[in-house]
Design a protein around this nucleic acid. Structure first.
Lengths: 169, 169
DNA sequence: TATTGTTATACTCTATAACTATA
DNA sequence: TATAGTTATAGAGTATAACAATA
């Protein structure tokens, strides 16, 4: 992060000199790719900001929500759902288990796998993050307007179409 | 990356065990946020795959395109356009200059700033990446369907609405 | 003093390969 | 041998703070 933090420095509102004459985006300004990226980044940062206090690191809320919706799922299934390598998930789950949010139980039928379950503390954390997420989606609604359902449908299609590419290639 | 690579290992097509019974996404499956992320990731990876050979690391194409569209812009302006800290841009530009793609010229009117210009080699690289980007956008078109313009407009609105949040807060 | 860009540094997220234990 | 998950490790991308040059 920083060079010699010296103090905890709780989110100092930096002024950020707004660009006076806007940069011409050229061809980029007519692409979906460029805005897909900037929109995603801006939206995620807004969510993290809103969830301030709750821990909203990248996939934490999704992990809690997915374990809640699929009690007993395995780490491999969870990793596939968020398109991450299982080795990336291990430290996340270590952390959630250490905090008493999630339990890992060896499955009797296949003792190599864990059945993941949400613990009461984990459900409480999920609900807290859900409140932020609901607010966040409400703001997205206001921005997106009446085309919300269609917008989501298109994003889904993009995600699945390119994801299929990845496996077929 | 890896533990003792031992060989160059040119992209071994890993089989990847497709999840047999799909994970239930629950509430997440109705949100824009979740699919904004997964769509962006899948689309970007597809672009990088397609540009194979050309160097399509995150902001490289955008940087070349933006310098081309705004000859003489400064590093600060460029950083603002892609919403990155100037310190993150320095090594990217070091690299592009080392390769003879971009020139930094001290501005006579303010010798603290550089005027960035695209060199012939940089323009060639831009054109090569542009070909991949055009193909990529064409595939996005096929996926998005007839709502392309509206889709882009919504993404723009999301990007700018949340970006304004960031500065005002 | 203020601003542009650089340097030193540290942190987060991610994946690959090897490993352990089970199957 | 094959698979689920862990460990060790590497590396990309990013930002913060201090700095040097210039304003």
């Amino acid at each position: 992060m920083a060079r010699r933090p010296l103090m905890k420095a709780k989110a100092p509102p930096r002024p950020k000199p707004a660009a006076q004459h806007p940069v011409e985006l050229g061809w980029l300004g007519g692409t979906a790719g460029f805005y897909l990226r900037t929109a995603q980044e801006a939206a995620f940062q807004a969510f993290a900001r809103r969830a301030n206090g709750a821990d909203a690191r990248p996939w934490r809320f999704a992990v809690l929500a997915l374990i809640d919706a699929n009690p007993g799922l395995t780490q491999g299934e969870l990793a596939a759902a968020i398109r991450r390598n299982t080795s990336s998930l291990t430290p996340v789950l270590d952390d959630l288990c250490r905090q008493g949010y999630v339990s890992r139980q060896r499955l009797e039928s296949d003792r190599r796998t864990y059945a993941l379950k949400l613990m009461p503390k984990g459900n409480a954390a999920r609900i807290k993050l859900l409140a932020s997420a609901v607010e966040h989606e409400r703001e997205l609604d206001r921005i997106v307007g009446s085309n919300r359902a269609q917008f989501i449908r298109i994003l889904q299609k993009v995600a699945t179409a390119f994801a299929q590419d990845a496996t077929s290639k």
